Simulated scan of single mutants.
Amino acid sequence: MAMPPATVLIADDHPLFRAALADLIRRTPEFELVGAVEALDPALSLLAERPCDLALLDLRMPGMTDLSVLSALRAKHPDTKLALISGNLDSEAVSGGLKNGIVGFLPKSFDPPVILAAIRLILSGAIYVPHELAALASEPESSPSAASSDEPSTLTEREREILTMMVAGASHKEIARSLGLAEITIKLHAQRIVKKLGVRNRAAAIAKAVRDQLVDPTI
Rank of each mutant, 00 (worst) to 15 (best):
L57M: 05
I10G: 01
I184E: 14
R60L: 12
V114W: 00
D12E: 14
L73Y: 12
A75E: 15
V114D: 03
G104H: 14
S143I: 12
S91E: 10
E38M: 02
C52K: 06
R50T: 10
I10H: 03
L57H: 06
R158W: 06
R18D: 08
V103Q: 10
T80F: 11
E141L: 13
T65M: 10
H172M: 06
L89Q: 04
I193L: 10
I184G: 06
G101F: 07
A72P: 00
S91Q: 03
E151I: 14
L82T: 03
I184V: 14
V37N: 03
S143T: 15
T185P: 04
A2S: 12
E157I: 12
L33T: 10
L47K: 07
A83P: 09
H14R: 14
A72N: 09
L116A: 06
L123Y: 03
E151V: 14
T164N: 05
A55C: 02
T80L: 10
L136W: 02
A204C: 00
K99N: 09
I25P: 12
L16F: 10
L163C: 06
S143L: 15
P62G: 03
Q213Y: 04
S68Y: 12
E92T: 03
L56C: 06
Q213C: 09
I193Y: 05
A204P: 00
V215E: 10
L44I: 05
R18V: 10
K99T: 01
T154L: 11
S91V: 06
L82F: 04
S145D: 15
Q213M: 09
G96Q: 05
L197S: 09
G180L: 02
R27D: 14
D212P: 06
V215S: 08
L121E: 14
P42Q: 13
M166C: 13
D79H: 15
I10V: 12
D111K: 15
F17I: 09
F105R: 07
P29S: 11
P113C: 02
T28V: 13
E157F: 09
D41C: 10
A190R: 12
K173I: 00
S143G: 15
P62T: 00
I102V: 10
L133T: 02
P62N: 02
D58L: 02
I119L: 15
N100E: 07
Q191T: 04
L121H: 12
V199L: 09
I25R: 11
F17P: 09
A43T: 01
L70T: 08
A20N: 11
I206Y: 00
K81I: 15
L47I: 05
S124H: 07
P4Q: 08
F110C: 02
E92K: 02
P217W: 03
R202C: 00
T154Q: 07
G125Y: 00
C52L: 08
V69C: 13
A170P: 00
L106P: 09
I102Y: 02
A72G: 12
L40C: 01
